[in-house]
Amino acid sequence: MSSRSILGKSLFLFIVALSAAALILITSLRKEAVREEPVLPVETLIPFQGDLEKIITISGFVESETTVTVLPRIGGTLEDISVEMGDPVEKDQVIAHIDSEPYTLSYNQARAAYLAAESTFKRVSSLYATKSVSQQNYDEAKGNFDALQASYELAELNLSYTNLSSPVKGVVLQKHVSRGSMVAPQVPVVTIGDIENLRVKCGIPEIHYSYFQKQGRSMEVKIRVPAMDNRVYSGTISHIAPYVSSQSRNFSIICGIDDEELTLRPGMFAYVEFVMDKRIGTYYLPYKALSGGGLWYVDEENTARFVPFEPQFGNDEFFELPADLADRKYVLKGQYFLEEGKTVRLLGE
C-alpha cells in the first residue's frame, strides 16, 4: 500500500473522529442550555373568603347630643361651686351659689314696700267703692301698688337666681370659674354634656347625596375611635341635611353612637365608615394580583397559566372573584415576567 493511500485513510478517519467529537460537544451544550434555563420564582395565594364591603370613610369628632353652658343671670361673688370636671349632675340640681346678701336686702325692701302699697290700695279701694275718694286717688293707689308689686316680684326672682342649677342631666365637661370669682351674665360657670347620647357629625361629598337619601336610614355605619385603641362602635344615621354647602360641596349627616358602656367622651376624633355595598361570604383577591388585563395562576404541575379577567365589584384593596375561579393558586408576586406554559417555582415550598 502506498504512503499516499495510507495518508488519505488517516485523514478521513481524523475528519470522522473530529465530526463525531463536534457532534457530541454540540449535543452536550444543548442539553446544558436546556438544563440551565431559569425557573422563575413566584409568590402565590389562595383567594380569601368572607364579607367584602365597599365603604367610604369620613373623619369627625364625637359630640354630645345636648351640651349646655351654664351662665348666671345676675352678677356677684361666687360663694360656692359644688361640682368638678367629670361629676355627674341631675336636671335642676344646684351646682353653684352666688352671694345672696345684697339680693336678700333688696328683696326685703321690695317686699316691705309692696305690703305697704297693698294695704293702701285695699283701703282706697274700699273708700272708692263708697264714692268717698275720687277716681284719680284710686288710679294713683292702684298704679303705685302695681309698680311695687312688679319690683317685689323682680327682687324675688333675682334672689332665686343666686342658686345656679343644671338645666340638663349629664356630666360636667368643663369648669370655667372657681370659688370667690366675680361672675356676671354671659360669663360661663360650667359646661355640662349628656354622655349617654353621643353622636358624630360628618360632611359627605355631594356625589353621594342621592344614595344617602335613598339608603341612609338603613345603611350600616361603623365608627372607629383611635383614642379607644381603634375600637369599632356601631352607629345609626339619625339626620341628613336637606341641602349641600356651596363652599365645601358637602352635605352634613349626624350619626348616633351605640356606646352602652359609656366609654366615649365628647371631643374624641373618630373615623366613620359607611358601608355602601356588601357581598356576604364571597371570594376576593388583592388588586396587586391583576396583571395585563387578567390573572396569572399556577396549575398542579407548577405551570403558569393566564386567564383574562376584569373586576366587577370591589373596594380600595380587594376585588370580588367568581366562585368558579376560586380553587386556584394566584400569582401575587413575579407575574410580570411570566409566559404561558412556563414552569415556575413556588416560594415557600
Rank of each mutant, 00 (worst) to 15 (best):
E140I: 01
Y107H: 09
A270V: 06
V133G: 07
L18T: 11
G293C: 13
L159V: 06
D194C: 14
R249M: 03
Q213K: 06
E156N: 10
A96P: 06
I240N: 12
Q335S: 10
L164H: 05
S106T: 06
Q247R: 04
L338Q: 03
A289D: 11
E310S: 15
A20N: 06
T236M: 07
S252L: 13
I26E: 04
C202W: 00
T263F: 08
Y103N: 11
V187R: 02
G256T: 11
M276Q: 04
V221I: 00
S132E: 14
F212M: 00
P322F: 01
M85L: 15
K278H: 11
N197A: 09
A17G: 05
Y287V: 12
L285D: 01
T104L: 05
V221C: 00
D316A: 00
M276W: 08
S28I: 13
V34C: 01
E300A: 05
T343P: 00
E118S: 10
F12W: 14
V124Y: 09
L105T: 10
P226Y: 00
N250L: 12
P308N: 02
Q213W: 07
Y330W: 05
P88I: 02
S151I: 03
A22N: 05
A117L: 02
S248W: 06
Q335P: 04
G348K: 10
L23T: 15
I257A: 09
G76D: 10
E37C: 00
Y211K: 15
L198N: 08
Y283P: 04
P266V: 12
V225L: 07
R217N: 13
Y336E: 10
F313D: 10
R345F: 06
S151L: 13
I58S: 08
I58P: 11
L127K: 13
Y283F: 15
I207R: 10
G293K: 08
L45Y: 08
E53K: 11
L71V: 08
E196D: 07
K142A: 08
A141V: 04
E63Q: 12
F274G: 11
G76H: 09
E317P: 03
G292W: 02
E317K: 12
I58L: 07
K91H: 10
V94R: 09
N158F: 05
A112C: 01
R305N: 15
K169G: 13
D92I: 14
E63T: 10
F319R: 13
L105C: 08
P205V: 03
L295P: 02
M1E: 07
R123V: 14
H176S: 14
I253W: 03
P167H: 13
E196M: 11
E310F: 07
T77R: 04
E220C: 05
S28H: 14
T343H: 06
S10W: 12
D316M: 00
S234V: 10
S5L: 11
T236K: 15
G8P: 02
Y283T: 08
M1F: 05
Q49P: 00
I254W: 12
L325F: 00
